[in-house]
Design a protein around this nucleic acid. Structure first.
Lengths: 351, 351
DNA sequence: ATCACTTGTGGGAGCGCTCCCACACTACCT
DNA sequence: AGGTAGTGTGGGAGCGCTCCCACAAGTGAT
């Protein structure tokens, strides 16, 4: 029983036309007021706003979408099963950043999981129907067909973690290179000299960049890079265990390990302990991600933190720009839309 | 460069009209095929389907929404900040059930957080614009204005956890009464006789039902109910501590505690231990929710599990029925739309 | 043969917007 | 005075569907 005001027809919500009649102006003028066009006199604007308030007018999204050919919605696509989404704080933080940046916008955020083949099928259908104005892609593998699909459908998209140095899509990333450097420099500063690196899955561009950072940090400190100290991993705990065992076999004299993820570090830590090495006394350990596991390890793990919430915000910024640019078919400038954010080393007792 | 087929106009996606022309039929017929109407001959249907495939036709959602006055979307509204959403497996499980039940539907699920006042403001606007056909409401407090808003806007809604026995909205709940009974019966079967109950926040209907179950279990086993053994809590850990301390003060002879939530049980457990009571030797402890904390406590906590995923599924079922019923303005039957699902006692070492 | 249905089909009207052209006015120059 | 810009405004056209009425053709009872 709220103040519904006068109704044009039975039961329905008020329309632009009814607001116009009430305010004594034309339909076009009301539309201009609703959409914040500057070409309206103050008096008219006030009259329209009054009518809007009296009638409780709310624009019909479907009509607007149809007429203007846009949806005012963007999707955050997570190519993982729900389970992982909830398990990793990465997504939660990302969502927080995205949500906060979007909150002073009219844009609606959709969360879409595309873990299973079935869900991917649905997603493809969804995108083909252009039900969103743009897409945020997180955690994409190098061989994922999704980015190409988006390009083909001409849907603006921003990817978190470019797939290569030549990523054609707009992207936001943390400074993997710099993060790795800071980890290695930290270990050097602590007097470590035989520093090994357990890499991430090398098909992932970010993992490669971390290796680059590792190498350069050593080199620029005047040390030689022993390629044998670089052992391939895959971001998993098990990979960490395998790699660590191999490293210990080949290089028993290791006094530090920089792992490409916290879980990898956890796996490596287990093997070290089983081999009788104390952390950090015998071997220092540094991880990457600064996830919950880092804080809960024994000893707590030094780790490289990525500004994930900020990355989410940056992604939205880029995407909204892309969307706005596309609207009047502006000359699609060739400026690179790549944002790289700084990381931070969080020192704990493991190093 | 996919097979785009023939295009009616430059660049745009194919429309119904174009499909109709291609198939040599009228617009109405194509619409009937797309929407699965039975009133189409097999030959015509085949021709239309061929044309749809050739042109890669995908219906325009906005146009459909405008013409048919529906959105084919429903919202899962979480009146909590994101943080809690991710922290509690409750939501993750719920989402899994909802998603799976929705996957053979055309319906799109939106996840909307309404934790802050600002977000609630946005949500109200969103609902007023009728941007969804229905709403799923989880974790609603008794004094929340949201359900009334939905009723007023005549938006179909299903609530998880009715606010009272007279909940006007369709609802899905687990059997709080039965769950509590099973917990108490379990303790009785284990030979416990001085069984206390730390309640949940009693403004929550489910908490009241648990007290009812506690009382009836004792009564029907031929025991007298000592109201002094019922100590009000509020679902929190701190509430558990306070209540437990009070109970120990008044009834030092207690040999079992049934807490209305796992975290409450955790708080109670701390106080018991500090008071020198061993669990389960001196005092048996049973919680509610079967959350992660139950498995990780020392000793692991016996707890009442709710079939959350199934609840999610049931909510979707109810909601889709409500939406379908509403479409042709059917006589809104007065059948109760209340579903109650059974709980299960998970026995662990704490009892 | 007539009537009454049923079945399949075509297409008009209309959903509520945005876009844009046309037009009335008002300035301010020559 | 006649031009030439701006400003603000009204309203037609059209976005791509669904709904529904109209109608043709077929079927069977009378």
């Amino acid at each position: 029983m709220a103040s519904h005001g006068v109704r044009g027809r039975s039961g329905g919500r008020p329309t632009l036309e009814e607001v116009a009649a009430r305010a004594g102006v034309g339909r076009g003028t009301v539309s201009r007021v609703i959409n914040g066009s500057p070409r309206v006199s103050d008096a008219t604007r006030a009259a329209v706003e009054a009518a809007v308030a009296e009638l409780g007018y709310v624009p019909n999204t479907a009509a607007r979408a149809l007429a203007a050919n846009r949806t005012d919605a963007i999707a955050l696509v997570v190519p993982e099963p729900e389970t992982r989404f909830f398990a990793e704080p990465y997504f939660s933080d990302m969502l927080k950043g995205v949500g906060s940046e979007l909150s002073d916008t009219e844009m609606q955020l959709l969360l879409i999981f595309a873990g299973s083949d079935r869900e991917r099928e649905r997603l493809a259908q969804y995108l083909a129907a252009h039900r969103v104005d743009g897409v945020l892609l997180v955690s994409v593998h190098a061989d994922d067909p999704l980015p190409d699909l988006l390009t083909q459908l001409e849907i603006p998209a921003v990817i978190s973690g470019p797939r290569s140095a030549a990523e054609p899509l707009a992207s936001v990333d943390s400074d993997n290179y710099g993060g790795a450097r800071s980890a290695v420099e930290h270990l050097l500063a602590r007097g470590r000299r035989r520093i090994a690196h357990i890499t991430g899955h090398l098909a992932v561009y970010g993992a490669q960049r971390r290796v680059d950072g590792y190498r350069d940090a050593l080199r620029e400190a005047g040390h030689e890079v022993d390629e044998g100290l670089i052992e391939p991993g895959d971001f998993t705990e098990d990979g960490g265990r395998r790699a660590m065992a191999e490293l210990l076999r080949r290089h028993p004299g290791i006094d530090a390990v920089f792992a490409a993820s916290d879980v990898t570090a956890a796996g490596a830590g287990q093997v070290l302990r089983e081999a009788g090495r104390r952390i950090p006394d015998d071997v220092a350990l540094v991880g990457y991600d600064d996830s919950a596991i880092a804080r809960h390890m024994e000893p707590p793990l030094t780790s490289v933190r990525q500004p994930i919430e900020e990355m989410g915000r940056a992604m939205i910024d880029l995407l909204l720009t892309e969307i706005a640019d596309r609207r009047p078919a502006v000359s699609r400038g060739l400026e690179r839309h790549q944002v790289v954010l700084a990381t931070e080393l969080v020192e704990r007792r493991s190093s």
